[in-house]
Amino acid sequence: MNHLPTRATTDVAAHPPVTEPRPRPHLVAVPSLPDSSRTDDEDGSLVAEYGLLAVVAATMCGALILWSRGDALTNFFTTLLNHARSIVAG
């Protein structure tokens, strides 16, 4: 006597239905509320600090541009490569 089933049977409990994947949450930028503990004097000094920082950054960029226009940049990289070669040559 053959105990094997004659046709394929499926058990619904063994194979739960396929569900759609959960959607990923989208990150949304939420504007922050101003800090109520700050006073107007602190806001003004913060603006002045950022302004001073911008002036310093612009000055440094200008100095870098002037320095790179001459042969200083070429000499810097030549010296750097020569030093690296001397280390490798031992």
Rank of each mutant, 00 (worst) to 15 (best):
T10L: 11
G44P: 07
D41I: 08
A58L: 01
L64R: 09
P23W: 00
A89R: 04
S36A: 15
T6D: 13
V28K: 09
G70N: 05
I65N: 00
P23K: 02
S32R: 15
A14N: 07
P5M: 05
T10R: 11
S36M: 13
V28N: 02
V56C: 05
S37E: 04
V18Y: 06
T6C: 13
D11W: 15
G51S: 07
A84V: 12
L73S: 02
T10M: 14
R85N: 03
T9P: 10
R7E: 11
V56K: 10
R69S: 02
A84C: 06
M60S: 14
G51V: 01
L46I: 15
L64S: 12
R22C: 11
S45R: 12
D40N: 05
G62L: 04
A57M: 06
L52Y: 12
V28E: 06
N2F: 10
T59F: 11
A54D: 08
I87S: 03
T19I: 15
P5V: 05
L53I: 13
R85F: 00
G90L: 04
P25A: 09
A54V: 07
D35F: 04
G70M: 00
D71F: 02
S37N: 12
E49T: 13
L52C: 12
L4Q: 14
V88R: 11
V47K: 15
